[in-house]
């Protein structure tokens, strides 16, 4: 009969937990040790058996009920949730977007005024809502009206 240390060594051998040197020692004595062979085979089979038949279980609650309880806790502890970092993500996009928008406004105010031909033969050029240009080709007159 083997002592506890020998038994635990054989188990460690099966589990791949021995040092290389100790593993070689066990493998050298194993062919002549029938008890050890039986134990090693038994441990291996038991491991294979229980791993292949891992007990399963189903949550004893409907999907909505189970999820709603989780959702409520997530919402109650919102500051810790990734939603906070999502908000920062929005800011990352928002700041450059605001910059782009500001540049667009400046560029548009410096663009060449768009001309609108009036029924009376004159043109109205709209720069923006606060400035209007009236030009009459026949009279050779241009009027700038700034609101």
């Amino acid at each position: 009969m083997k002592n506890t240390e020998q038994l635990l060594d054989l188990q460690a051998y099966v589990d791949g937990e021995l040092s290389e040197e100790r593993r070689r020692q066990i493998e050298a004595t194993l062919p002549a040790d029938l008890d050890a062979q039986e134990l090693v085979a038994g441990l291996r089979q038991l491991g294979t058996l229980i791993r292949a038949h891992e007990p399963v279980a189903t949550v004893p609650a409907a999907r909505e009920f189970y999820w709603n309880q989780i959702r409520r806790q997530i919402e109650a502890e919102q500051p810790k949730a990734p939603a906070a970092s999502a908000a920062l993500g929005w800011l990352r996009w928002l700041i450059p977007a605001m910059g782009v928008a500001a540049v667009a406004v400046v560029v548009s105010t410096q663009q060449t005024p768009r001309e609108i031909t009036l029924a009376g033969g004159g043109d109205v050029t709209a720069v923006d809502v606060s400035s209007t240009v009236f030009r009459s080709e026949s009279d050779g007159v241009t009027v700038h009206w700034i609101q």
Binding site: V56, V59, Y66, I74, A86
Partner: peptide, 21 residues
């Protein structure tokens, strides 16, 4: 990770039995 709780709900639904077991 971006804060989409619907995506997370799907993960919960998919793996809840394993975690419960």
């Amino acid at each position: 990770q971006q804060g989409d709780t619907e995506a997370f709900e799907q993960l919960v639904f998919r793996h809840r039995d394993k975690i419960y077991a």
